[in-house]
Design a protein around this nucleic acid. Structure first.
Lengths: 226, 226
DNA sequence: CCTTCCTGTAACATGATTGTCACATTTGTC
DNA sequence: GACAAATGTGACAATCATGTTACAGGAAGG
């Protein structure tokens, strides 16, 4: 769940914004002055900060600048809220490090959309939950879990890599040398028959899914459904 | 029950404040100089600190600043006590990280109200504080406290970071280099086997929860239930 | 300044993993 | 069906990855 910090001195606006963003499934923190905003930002490292430009004690712009100076907080995207009258040149705001701007009065819809967009933009790296499914076989690469018909299959390092090498090139035949390269590394020297042994072991361990690994006589192996 | 630490060199004021707050149902700790205040704060992690600005040995402001610098103590709200003459700009106080201000002489009623208000303000943070629970294991990230089956587990910095690195990427396997990067930093040079040693230490200290850390032979480690 | 605790490295123990081989089985060809 | 070539398979010893412990240097705290 994403955390959003709202720094806004006007209670009612803060609550309104908080309400709508909570409804969107975000976790909301609210503070009502700049200094608390700084502290909270540092302590909680939220995923996004919504910052009012006019704040008691410390200007929103100062908060923004300060946050952008520290490595830990610099990455947190900031959406600035500005009242109509105080409309600063957007460029100035962006120079301060704000990631987006919303001018009061704003519609909730607009704000929610901005928030979503900024958060999406900030998504560091789409951690691909790479899962490969072939018939009864599932390979969860990140978790390093393989199962065949729901039963977990415990594989050794080489077996896993070999399975992956085959599964990632589904349908395509690979000869023993290619497999050796892919699984054992470029500078492997040894018997190509080693591959056979591991294929056997894989097939045995995979149970039902073992049939997915086909022998292509004279060439090598491939993985294929049916 | 909430614990309040009072750091105040004037015995009679300290006792007066302590008396009234005890009556309110708080658990009170009292120390009379800044250094003791720091120590006590670190050792007891109170829910609130009432800190005199003028202290022998170390200024209240220094105590405040120091406390706010450490992750463990930064979250503890602080109410500053200032004598009338020494009224500093509130902004300075807030910049130091104080959460509220009370000027001497103050009425007991006023102080009690401030305490309640500050504690209430801090409440949602505490409730929403980031906690990771995996089976019998609980990691309180903000407070740096780990327990396994309710028993507190005392971890060193590295152990804690390592645990966090694993827990935050629950289920996903991380190799030793990734762990080194995440825990030791980008520019660490050294033996990757160091990770193993710390994994062992972690497992030992975690007791029952040690089993949550799985070895993925040939790849690295992952954390996972069951 | 001293003590205690933390940390990285090395050394050793252990059990899983792996490459090889020998032999069995299959496949395609004549 | 015979034959050769290719592939399957099981055993086994060497190797390797990891667990574990010890230790010395260093950091942190008093």
């Amino acid at each position: 769940m994403k955390t959003i910090l709202i720094v806004e001195d006007e209670q009612d606006i803060a609550e309104l914004v908080a309400f709508h963003l909570r409804k969107e499934g975000y976790r909301i923190l609210t503070v009502h002055d700049g200094v608390s905003g700084l502290e909270m930002a540092r302590a909680q490292l939220p995923d996004l900060i919504i910052l009012d430009l006019m704040l008691p004690g410390m200007m929103g712009t100062d908060v923004c600048r300060t946050l952008k100076q520290s490595a830990r907080t610099a990455v947190i995207p900031i959406i600035m809220l500005t009242a109509k009258g105080e409309e600063i040149d957007r460029v100035v705001g962006f120079e301060m490090g704000a990631d987006d701007y919303v001018v009061k009065p704003f519609s909730n819809r607009e704000l929610v959309l901005r928030v979503r967009s900024v958060l999406r933009r900030a998504e560091p790296e789409i951690v691909e939950e790479k899962k490969i499914t072939i018939g009864p076989l599932t390979i969860d690469v990140a978790r390093h879990i393989v199962d065949s018909r729901g039963e977990e299959v415990v594989l050794t390092t080489i077996e896993f890599k070999l399975l992956l090498a085959l599964a990632e090139r589904l349908g395509r035949v690979q000869n023993r040398d290619q497999l050796l390269k892919n699984v054992w590394g470029y500078n492997y020297v040894g018997d190509t028959r080693t591959v056979d042994t591991h294929i056997t072991r894989l097939r045995t361990k995979l149970g039902d899914s073992g049939d997915l690994i086909k022998t292509v006589r004279g060439f090598g192996y491939k993985m294929e459904e049916g």
